[in-house]
Amino acid sequence: MLDIKDLHVAVEGKEILKGLSLHVGEGEVHAIMGPNGSGKSTLSYVLAGRDGYDITSGSIIYKGEDLTVMPPEARAARGVFLALQYPVEIPGVTTINFLKAALNAQRRARSESEFDAMTVLRLVRDKARSLDISEDMLRRALNVGFSGGEKKRLEVLQMALFEPKLAILDETDSGLDIDALKLVAEGVNKLRVPGRSMLVITHYQRLLNYIVPDRVHVLAGGRIVAEGGKELALELEARGYSHIVKDAA
């Protein structure tokens, strides 16, 4: 599904990713953990195609295609979904209108027929219920005045609606209390199907109790410095990052 080879990325001239390699197979859930400043968000933004993240060398192959030459909207149409750590507020654009515009833009890019407003509303309501997203939230401006938990739940709703092939969850657990975390994790787990891969980026092990990964990678100093099964996450929890980073240096 996703093959990253020796990726070097600079932001404003400063190198953040220094030779990152990662392979994610179809249907697999991989966790990326690491200390602050290790490059976790940089990785997610590069995968989503954000401006200002310069790939100086290396490659990203997604479903056999070079992802780096595609603009963000083309990646979305091909099934790449980034659940942001800090979802953006867009005043004046209602949540439901945004969902319809985005869903139809993706379908149009894939030469699929567009849905009318009623169909989109039906699809959305269906998925909104289990995520405790109210009708009121759908009618309000996108993310404006939403709590941290509400914003994250809306990211998961989008994931359910767009049905991506590769979902990147960037610190989805940040700012959430236990109950909110459980609700979000439940939503994500429901979307764990054979054709879908996930990259769960997190600083803390806690989320991984609920979204159990197939593989854990430790990102430090812009590179993957350790890999293992889900037990690695528990080990990090117990002993912290410093010993792993030291060992790898």
């Binding site: 989503a48 195609g49 954000r50 401006d51 603009p71 963000p72 909207e73 990646r75 979305a76 149409a77 980034l82 942001l84 979802p87 953006v88 507020e89 867009i90 005043p91 004046g92 654009v93 945004f98 515009a101 985005a102 869903l103 833009a105 993706q106 890019a109 401006a141 989008q158 767009f162």
Partner: peptide, 30 residues
């Protein structure tokens, strides 16, 4: 125009023109 907002919309599938138009229409809505 808020670059963050435009990136968010593009990352959800809207092309640059559509994203700008959505944000500007919202600006003129009131």
């Amino acid at each position: 125009l808020d670059a963050e907002a435009l990136f968010y919309l593009r990352a959800r599938g809207l092309d640059e023109l559509e994203a700008r138009s959505l944000v500007l229409r919202a600006f003129l809505e009131d």
